[in-house]
Amino acid sequence: MAKSNKPIIWGTFAAGGELVSLVTPVLILLTLLAATGHVPDALSYAKLHAFAAGWFGKLVIFVILFLSLWSQAHRLRITCFDFGMRADGVVAVVFYLIATVGSLASLMYLARI
């Protein structure tokens, strides 16, 4: 039995799981405030654009998006299996492809700011 290559994804799942647990609730709270009309100062166009223009802001945004995409893609794959979908290979390709495209897109958007 060959050793598994799952660690490469699991690494992002573990790191992403930790990050998502720590920051996602407060991020949702911020956009919820914006959704109810109380746009937080940092979410104004000028402030957020300035943040994303700096290398530190770019790094923070990329790390959050990259790890969230990969960790949730991996979890969604397992969730599909747990709900009874047995086409695990197809499911894995679809979610990991979304995570790949999302990661590349976020790099592209950040480069434009």
Partner: peptide, 9 residues
């Protein structure tokens, strides 16, 4: 899992 992931990398 953690140890096997470190091994893999």
């Amino acid at each position: 899992k953690v140890a096997s992931t470190v091994d893999w990398y």
